[in-house]
Amino acid sequence: MVGVSGVTGGTAAGKGRRVRNGASGFSLGSASTGAAAAAQAAAPAQAVGLLALQEAGPVAERDSRARKRGEALLQSLSELQLGLLGGRLDPARLRAMAALVPGEEAADPALAAAISAIRLRARVELARHGLEAASSSD
């Protein structure tokens, strides 16, 4: 392990480099010009930040709606299974499941894949019992 033994003063970057006396390459300019430039430079960053905040809300809401629809479809599939095991098929339950199949896609790719698999299983069950789900993108 290498340790730091101390701090030294500044040195020139290279031996061939000349240092100018007097004027430097950096200037602050007037205070009003500097403030206007700072405001213009900050505006795009703030606009992007606000846009990101606006986009975060709808994405989270869309994922939440998709998750709730997926959970409702799973519950409906479970109820259908229990009904079939009990020897009774409820057409109203099938129609309710068919209404849940179409809907907005989730923004999260993993959630979208899970919801797509649930929707596919629901459509298979609906087809087995002679019903069609409304148009969907799966």
Rank of each mutant, 00 (worst) to 15 (best):
R18F: 14
L73I: 12
A133I: 07
A35K: 09
S76T: 06
P44A: 00
G25Q: 01
A113S: 09
R119V: 11
G16C: 03
A42Q: 04
E105Q: 11
V19A: 15
K68M: 11
Q54R: 05
A106K: 03
K68Q: 03
L89V: 08
E125K: 15
G49F: 00
S32D: 04
V19C: 02
L80E: 00
L53Q: 07
S76F: 00
E61A: 15
L82W: 06
V101W: 01
A66W: 02
G83M: 07
L94A: 07
A107R: 04
L73P: 00
A42N: 01
G49H: 00
A12Y: 13
A41E: 08
R93Y: 11
A35N: 05
P44Q: 01
L111Y: 01
R93Q: 08
G130A: 15
V101A: 02
R69W: 02
H129N: 15
H129P: 06
L80V: 01
S78V: 08
S116Q: 15
N21C: 00
D108F: 06
L126W: 14
R123C: 13
E132K: 11
D90Q: 07
A45N: 09
G34P: 06
I118E: 05
E61F: 12
R62P: 10
S27I: 02
A35P: 04
S64P: 13
I115G: 11
G103N: 14
R128Q: 15
L51P: 01
S5D: 14
R67P: 04
G87H: 05
G6T: 13
A47F: 03
A12Q: 03
D90A: 08
G70H: 13
R17D: 08
G57H: 14
R123L: 05
D63I: 10
G3A: 12
R93W: 07
V59H: 14
Q40L: 04
K15T: 13
Q75T: 12
A41W: 05
A96W: 01
A47Y: 03
E79Y: 10
A41V: 08
A110I: 09
A43P: 00
L50G: 08
G10A: 12
D138P: 12
L131A: 02
V59R: 14
Q54A: 11
A12T: 11
A12C: 13
R67C: 04
V101R: 05
L131F: 10
G86L: 02
A56V: 05
A23L: 12
A42V: 03
L51K: 14
R121F: 09
A12R: 10
V101E: 02
G34H: 11
P91T: 05
G16F: 12
G16T: 02
A43M: 01
A52T: 01
S30Y: 05
A37N: 11
L85F: 00
A114Y: 14
E125F: 06
R20P: 10
A133K: 07
R18Q: 03
G16Y: 13
A36Q: 07
L73A: 00
L73G: 00
S24N: 11
G34S: 07
G22H: 01
T33W: 09
G9N: 06
V59Y: 15
I115T: 04
T33H: 15
L85E: 02
P58E: 10
N21D: 02
V19P: 05
D108R: 09
G9L: 11
L28A: 03
E125Q: 14
R18N: 14
R18P: 09
P44S: 02
